[in-house]
Design a protein around this nucleic acid. Structure first.
Lengths: 214, 214
DNA sequence: GTTAGCATGTAAGGAGTTACATGATTTT
DNA sequence: AAAATCATGTAACTCCTTACATGCTAAC
C-alpha cells in the first residue's frame, strides 16, 4: 500500500536535493514542475513522503508542538516537518536520474525527467531525447498510415483533429532534434550540478543494464 | 462498482450509433479514437458494457454457442455478443454529445468530444471550442507569469521546456481560433447527422443549465 | 496443424483524486 | 477579529491497467 509512482519520487528527491522543505512547499514546487495546471494533491504526496521515510530515503527535522491532551484531542506530537535527503536518498536520486529507459520518455514522466536534466550526464540526456524522438516518430507514422488508409471514411472534424495532432507531433520532433543537436555540439560540461552518478552507464555499445527498472 | 468514465461511455454510444458491434471491434474503434498509441483495455471496456446493459442503454443480439457441460467446464451460455443501442441509449448519446461544460474541453475528454462533433449542433461546437481556448489561454498566461517572475532562477533546460510548452499551447490556440472562425462563417447545417438533441441548449445569454452534469 | 487474429471475460492492484478533519500563523 | 494561507494528514472512491483464463475460426 501507498506505493509511490517513480515520477513523484524523483521529483521529491530532486527538489530536496536543492534544499530541505516542508511537505506543503514540496507540493507547490512539484506542482510547478508538472505545469499545465496539473496540481499534486496532498493525498498523494503525504503518503509518498511517509513511505520514503520508512525506506530511509528521507529523514525528518521537526519542530514538534506537543499538542495539549484535551477532551477529544489525542495528545501527541504534531508539528511542522522539514524533510531532508539521507545518503540513501541521494544515491537513489543519482540512480533514478541516470536511468534512460522507456519510462524516462513516456508522456507521464518526461516532463519531470527533463526538469532534472541539469543533474544528468550528457549521454543520459541524449538517450532520453533520442528515445522520446523515435517513440514520437513511430506514433506519427502510425497516424499517417491510418490517415492514408481511411481518409475517405472520416468526417471533416476527425480529419482536422488528426491533422492537428500530426502537426503538434512534428513540432515536438523538431524541438527534440534541436536539443539533440546542441547536446552533441556543445562544449558544456556533462555534469552541471553536484551529483555523482552511478557510473555504470557510459557511451559503450550495449547500454543494456540501466535501461529497464526504475 | 464498475462505474464507467463519461468519455468511454460517450465513445461506446457514439460508435454504436453508427452500427451494432462486438465488444472486440468496439475496443479497436475506441482505441482508434483515442489515438496517440493509447489503447483501451478489455478490463475497462467489458465491465463498462455490462453496466450499460444493466442501465438499459444497450441490448444484446447474441449468437449463443451453448458450451458443452463437460468435466471442469461449467456449462452455460457463451457466445459472440453484438451490442446495439436502445432508445434510452440514443437519448443518452444525444444528452452527452450536447453537453458543453468544462468536462467537454478538459484534456481527457476533448479528443472524444471532438470525434463526435458532426453529431452536435453548431452552438455546442462553438461553446466547446471557445471553452477549451479560454482554458488554454489561462494556462498560457500562468506559464508566462511564472516565467517572467522567475526567469533568473531557472536553468536552461527548464526554460527550454517552458518555452516549448508555450509554443505548443499557442499553436493549439491558433488552431482552435481557425475552427471557431470557420464555424461562425460557415453555411454548413448545424446538424450533420441524425441526432435529435435535447433542445434545451441554445444561444441565449445564460447557458447555465447544460453546463455541469455529465 | 499451427499460428494469428477473433472473441469474452475476471481478479488484483496501481496511481492517483476529492472530500473530510484539524489547527497554527500571518496579513488585512 | 476575520480572512487567507500555512501545515498535516486520512478514508473512500475512481478509473484504469496487467495478468490471467478460456476457446473459436480463418489463413498459411
Amino acid at each position: 500500500m501507498a506505493k509511490r509512482g517513480a515520477a513523484l519520487e524523483l521529483a521529491v528527491l530532486g527538489l530536496l536535493h536543492e534544499a530541505p522543505m516542508h511537505g506543503y512547499e514540496l507540493r507547490k514546487r512539484v506542482t510547478g514542475l508538472l505545469g499545465w495546471g496539473r496540481v499534486l494533491s496532498y493525498g498523494s504526496l503525504y503518503p509518498c513522503l511517509k513511505q520514503m521515510l520508512r525506506d530511509g530515503l528521507l529523514c525528518e527535522d521537526t519542530t514538534y508542538l506537543d499538542l495539549p491532551v484535551g477532551p477529544g484531542a489525542r495528545g501527541g506530537r504534531r508539528g511542522k516537518i522539514v524533510y531532508k535527503l539521507t545518503a540513501d536518498g541521494k544515491e537513489r536520486f543519482a540512480t533514478l536520474v541516470s536511468a534512460a529507459g522507456p519510462s524516462a520518455w513516456e508522456d507521464d514522466s518526461f516532463g519531470v525527467r527533463f526538469a532534472f536534466f541539469a543533474a544528468t550526464s550528457r549521454e543520459t540526456r541524449l538517450r532520453i531525447l533520442e528515445g522520446r524522438r523515435s517513440r514520437l516518430e513511430e506514433r506519427l507514422e502510425g497516424v499517417r498510415a491510418t490517415l492514408a488508409r481511411s481518409r475517405e471514411r472520416l468526417d471533416a472534424y476527425t480529419l482536422e483533429l488528426q491533422r492537428h495532432g500530426l502537426e503538434s507531433g512534428e513540432h515536438e520532433v523538431r524541438w527534440l532534434t534541436e536539443l539533440i543537436d546542441s547536446e552533441r555540439v556543445d562544449r558544456a560540461p556533462s555534469r552541471t550540478i553536484d551529483v555523482q552518478e552511478t557510473s555504470t552507464s557510459s557511451t559503450d555499445g550495449q547500454p543494456s543494464s540501466a535501461d529497464n527498472r526504475e
